[in-house]
Amino acid sequence: MASSSQPQSTTEKDNSLHDNVLKAFPSADLTEDDLSQNPQFCKLLAKLSEHVDSTGLPESRRKQLAKADEELQAEMKKWMRPMIIHQLLEEMVQEHVVGKQKCMAMPEDDKFYRTLEQCLLAAKCSVGLHLAEAPSPVLGISAEHLKRAMPSEQDIHDMQEKLPKELEKHLKRKANSILGYVQPDSEKDSDGLKLKKFNHLPQMLKAERDRIEHIRENNKDLAFKLTRETHNYLNDSLEHMKLLQTLLLENRLKVQTELDRKKLEYVEGKCQLAVQKIRLQMLEVQLDTYTASKIATHKKISEHLETELMATQKEKQDVKNQLESYEMFGQEFKDLAEEYARLQAEIKAKKLAVEDFTKPQLN
């Protein structure tokens, strides 16, 4: 009992070590067979997992990377803030252009959005052509040209005064649209309640993202366990197959004679059945082919052929009798027959020669 429990505890310890190594390095593309075949390498990875994370970075580097990532996120927010505002302003202009196709806009609104569009276009040209540094060498456009193309200062001033309120309305519409997508039931809520819910929307989205990430981690663990169980199941199945194969080979000779006899009887019965089916099909074909009228016709044809056969046989007998009578003359008749055949050949040859000689010759 003690000797059997000792290997089992060693096996369980190795399996636990393999599990820890595979979980510590999920992206290393390792299998349990690799770790089993290289135990020293497995121990090295186990020691290494105490000093690095799943990506292979030590703790100090991971902290530096996290700090650098925070700084990058902060800089990205600073850089994206004016870009987002510019994109919102372009969306406002596009919505106004589309809205004019459906209904007439107020003159002051039309003037506001026209001024805003011109300012946005001038700003885009200035940034794209780097006009703040020097005039464009290709197009010959300078900042002064854009300034002359800008609306009047009064129109720009009026637009700038109205812009915060219009931008606030646009942001409110987008916020309600996003909230309606995340929480469809909030369409019936009041504006104050919608604003309150929208203020909590980042926390809700973050919580939802954390929940999804937690589910993904659980799925990774489940996938790892499934892979482990599948591996064990395949190994057990292979062992069972080997055992079954051994038992089959041991017992096969004992029952092989009986199985062969049964198989032979089955094949004989199947052959007899096939022969009977063929005979049945032949009879069916004959019944379908030879009807009563066809059989009567075949009888008449058979009687006619038998009559001709008898006449032919009689003629054959007559010819045979003549040949026998000729054979009675012996060698003299044979020589006469050969001489007759030779004379016939000479006559035929001389006829051909006379015909060739009598033909008119062409000059």
Score class of each variant (00 low, 15 high):
Glu187Leu: 15
Gln160Ile: 05
Leu171Tyr: 01
Ile178Leu: 15
Glu187Lys: 14
Lys188Pro: 03
Leu163Arg: 00
Asp189Thr: 05
Met150Leu: 15
His170Tyr: 15
Leu179Lys: 00
Leu163Asp: 04
Asp185Pro: 00
Ile156Gln: 03
Asp155Phe: 02
Glu153Ile: 08
Lys188Tyr: 10
Asn176His: 09
Asp158Glu: 13
Glu153Val: 10
Lys174Ser: 09
Asp185Glu: 14
Arg173Trp: 02
Gly180Asn: 15
His157Leu: 14
Asp155His: 00
Ser177Ile: 07
Tyr181Gly: 07
Glu168Phe: 11
His170Ser: 09
Arg148Trp: 06
Gln160Pro: 02
Asp189Tyr: 10
Ile178Gly: 00
Ser186Thr: 09
Ala175Met: 14
Glu153Pro: 02
Met150Glu: 04
His157Tyr: 12
Tyr181Glu: 13
Ala175Gly: 10
Ile156Asn: 00
Val182Thr: 08
Lys162Trp: 08
Ile178Ser: 15
Gln154Met: 05
Gly180Asp: 15
Asp185Trp: 08
Met150Pro: 00
Lys172Leu: 08
Val182Cys: 06
Asp189Ala: 10
Lys165Asp: 10
Lys188Asn: 12
Ala149Ser: 14
Lys188His: 11
Glu168Tyr: 08
Ile156Tyr: 00
Asp185Ser: 14
Arg148Met: 05
Met150His: 04
Glu166Ala: 12
Leu171Met: 10
Pro151Asn: 00
Lys165Arg: 07
Gly180Gln: 12
Glu166Lys: 15
Lys162Phe: 06
Pro151Gly: 02
Asp185Ala: 14
Lys162Asp: 07
Asp155Ala: 04
Leu179Pro: 02
Arg173His: 07
Asp185Lys: 12
Glu187Trp: 07
Ala175Tyr: 01
Ser186Lys: 09
Val182Met: 01
Arg148Thr: 08
Ser152Glu: 10
Leu167His: 03
Asp158Gln: 12
Pro151Ser: 05
Glu187Ala: 15
Leu167Val: 06
Asp185Phe: 07
Pro164Asp: 08
Leu167Tyr: 06
Lys174Glu: 07
Glu187Ile: 12
Gln160Leu: 09
Pro184Glu: 01
Pro184Met: 02
